[in-house]
Amino acid sequence: MNQRVTFRGWWLPILLIAPQVIISAVFFFYPAGQAIWQSLFIPDPFGLSSVFVGLGNFEFLFSDKFYRASFVTTAVFSILVTLCSMIPALFLAVMADRLIKGSGTYRTMLIWPYAVAPAIAGVLWLFMFNTRVGVVSWYLGQLGYDWNHVLNGGEAMGLVVVASAWGRISYNFLFFLAALQAVPRSVIEAAAIDGARFWKRFWTVVLPLLSPTAFFLLVVNIVYSFFETFGVIHTITSGGPQQSTTILVYKVFADGFVGQDLGSSAAQSVILLFVVGLLTIIQFKYIEKKVHY
């Protein structure tokens, strides 16, 4: 028997959703609309004149092979950041969950990196890996490895991934730990009685129960790696060497605020809007089906 509760009349429901609608309209729909509108023009930086080009900005972007390559860079970067921030976080959470003594200290220490702003984290990592004064690059040199992220694209990518994922591990750790503690003890004990060892229990019992959290973190981390890693990239590599760490968002910044090319920058924002929208739809449509709530 399914009883549905409905409102009588229209005024109350409209009033109740109004704040959310207004906030979305002012902070999302209006700016998004503006971006779409501006992406149809090539304005001059001072806003003195602007030329209508229709879809010219998009044409310009997609005919640029470096822009197309930036999609691949972004995909590689996002996947790596998401994996590098979720897997260690899960591992640490599982370990922290099993701690009996000193777990409070351990947890607090693990959460600290989250308080470091991305740009600061970038500078910290840059110092460690600085080709001249960096501690890590010096040790690598002692081991006979010549670290040079200034010229080596792979190393640069590795560095920005680690720097972006580092602070994020804490955030993911928090969620995983909370989720682990919500796993009913009775289920685990039942599995133990059935003779399942720790890792067997983890794979077959705990992990499926963690899937809603893992799914949430997946979405959040992908969005993070798309939009919030900009500060790290700006401080460490500025998108180089060549274009090996230029992700889509960094290009929006570089073209809009360094190049003063607002038309192209707006067009890129619109493309990004679609990409992220599409990703979220895919995630909810396909991955969510595998999630047990």
């Binding site: 010229l151 080596n152 998108g239 180089g240 060497p241 060549q242 570089a254 190049g259 003063q260 090319d261």
Partner: peptide
């Protein structure tokens, strides 16, 4: 757009220095 063009030149010069 010379600030941006300088960025492009920097990228291409890096490709020379790395031997790409």
């Amino acid at each position: 757009s010379y600030d941006q063009i300088r960025g492009i030149i920097d990228e291409e010069l890096e490709a020379i220095w790395s031997g790409d």
